[in-house]
Simulated scan of single mutants.
Amino acid sequence: MKRIPKATTASLAVSAGLIAGATFLATPAHADPGADAFVGALSSAGLGGIDPATAVSVGQSVCPMLSEPGQQMADVAAGVSDALGRPLGPATMFTGIAISMFCPAAVTSLANGQNPIPFGLAGF
């Protein structure tokens, strides 16, 4: 039987304690209210059953995709469909909710009568 020196055993115990403590401290103290509101809006729209972290990640990717030159909303919805593994109809609804929740500049522009996204080019 191989003996482990006491100093090594003690340092392993300390290391394990530090890792456990770091893991505990790394967990968020509270969830992001914007993310919670987004997941709630999806659920209210009948788009439940999506992993919340995945939903938020995909939702937050919508605005940057829309801002790319020449990008069309239909293409973004198709990308969302692929990312979520959902049909295009629900993915389009998801995309609209993501825009309303995560793209405040686009929503403000629309409220001011401006069109930040060329919907005519997007197939709408």
Rank of each mutant, 00 (worst) to 15 (best):
8 T>K: 09
15 S>M: 10
15 S>I: 12
17 G>P: 02
18 L>N: 04
21 G>R: 03
21 G>S: 12
23 T>Q: 04
26 A>I: 01
33 P>H: 04
33 P>T: 00
36 D>A: 13
39 V>N: 04
39 V>D: 03
42 L>Q: 08
43 S>Q: 15
44 S>T: 14
45 A>D: 11
48 G>M: 13
50 I>F: 13
54 T>L: 15
57 S>Q: 14
58 V>C: 03
59 G>E: 10
59 G>C: 14
63 C>A: 12
64 P>G: 10
70 G>K: 11
73 M>F: 14
75 D>A: 15
75 D>L: 14
75 D>P: 03
76 V>K: 05
81 S>C: 09
84 L>I: 00
84 L>D: 03
84 L>V: 01
85 G>T: 13
88 L>Y: 06
88 L>A: 10
90 P>R: 05
91 A>I: 07
92 T>P: 08
94 F>V: 08
96 G>T: 05
98 A>R: 01
99 I>S: 00
105 A>T: 02
106 A>E: 13
106 A>D: 15
108 T>C: 03
108 T>I: 02
111 A>E: 02
114 Q>N: 01
114 Q>A: 06
114 Q>Y: 06
116 P>I: 04
116 P>Q: 08
116 P>Y: 04
119 F>Q: 12
119 F>V: 14
120 G>K: 02
120 G>H: 01
122 A>S: 14
123 G>L: 13
123 G>D: 12
